[in-house]
Design a protein around this nucleic acid. Structure first.
Length: 316
DNA sequence: AAAGCCGACAACCGCGAATAG
DNA sequence: CCTATTCGCGGTTGTCGGCTT
């Protein structure tokens, strides 16, 4: 038995919203709120629309203070960092970018950022190793598969956007507290167990996790990540004027440190990755089989491995 | 000029989670 | 506790406009 439809599809209008419908919905919600029931709302105001459609229209378009387009480099940086850290959790990413909707960010990532980051990577990969990453979609799919890893913690939605500022590690720590509740309020690391209780995470792992987030997410320290991972002045990046500094840094990280970014092999090695994934059931990427030498944790730990190998932890 | 292609974005769909009764 | 309903999320699809051939 299938799931009951949320509305009678024969009696609801679909497709683009007219200005009249927008005005109707907007004025009603501004005056009365949603009433806590989206399903009933369209009937109340005489709209032949599905309640879910109304909700989407309001959240993504009609809501006040919504920004469309014109993503700044800082926003790019945050989106990319968070995507690498937590995957395609658009609502969480959107919570960090006031005025942006998850749908907007998702579209922006799929149409621009992904290509911006991996498009060039693909090009470079071809010349560097004499082969090409099979496709952007494969990369994306593999990231998505990683997101489905059962040990990935469930993350709460931000109630308040956290403003990132350069060198503001406190804000990042607060984000991590909110994301996973991994840190106690008095900033002491505590023993934690992943949600499915399958993979206990000790203090040092959490310390690594936190430090990696610090390095990865905050804007200024991103430079430190590259600095700590690279020999100085090796392979100066060839800027073509189109790629932003951030893009260049990102690609640089991927290009030059593949052995260090355990767990992100798919970003540069298609054949190896395909072989591995083919051995797992359903072709899904299994984190442990993907990298048996690191803790069976989400991708973030892969980068922690970088820190371990580099001994960078000692400096922190 | 027309057809085809492609990128961008809005909107839809289906699922799991949350909540109410 | 169980069931039904609603919400929220993320993936996917549809549509439109611009560009190329």
């Amino acid at each position: 038995m299938g799931r009951a439809p949320c509305c009678d599809k024969n009696n609801v209008k679909r497709g683009p919203w007219s200005p009249e419908e927008d005005a109707k919905l907007k004025s009603y919600i501004e005056q009365n709120g949603t009433g806590g029931n989206w399903i009933a709302l369209p009937q109340k105001i005489g709209l032949k629309r599905c309640g879910k459609s109304c909700r989407l229209r309001w959240l993504n378009y009609l809501r006040p203070n919504i920004k469309h387009g014109g993503f700044s480099e800082e926003e790019d940086r945050i989106i990319c960092s968070l995507y690498i850290s937590i995957g395609s959790r658009w609502s969480i990413i959107a919570a960090q970018l006031p005025g942006r909707t998850d749908n907007d960010i998702k579209n922006y990532w799929n149409t621009k950022l992904k290509k911006k980051l991996f498009g060039k990577q693909r090009q470079k990969q071809g010349s560097r190793k004499g082969k090409e990453i099979n496709s952007i979609s494969t990369i994306s799919n593999n990231i998505n598969n990683m997101n489905q890893n059962p040990c990935w913690p469930e993350l709460p939605i931000m109630q308040q956007p956290i403003q990132f500022s350069n060198n503001d590690h406190t804000s990042i720590r607060k984000l991590l507290i909110k994301l996973g509740g991994k840190f106690s309020e008095n900033d002491q690391l505590t023993n934690v167990v992943s949600p499915n209780s399958q993979y206990p995470i000790d203090n040092s792992s959490m310390q690594l996790m936190y430090q990696n987030h610090i390095k990865l997410i905050s804007s200024s320290p991103i430079d430190n990540v590259f600095n700590s991972m690279t020999a100085p002045n090796t392979d100066p990046y060839d800027m073509d004027g189109e790629a932003s500094n951030f893009t260049a840094e990102f690609e640089h990280m991927i290009n030059n440190h593949q052995q260090k970014l355990d767990g992100l092999e798919f970003l540069y090695e298609d054949d190896v990755f395909i072989d591995k994934s083919a051995s797992t059931s359903g072709g899904n990427l299994d984190w442990e089989s993907m990298n048996p030498y690191v803790l069976p944790l989400p991708p973030i730990v892969a980068s922690n491995d970088v820190i371990l190998q580099e001994g960078a932890l000692d400096e922190l």
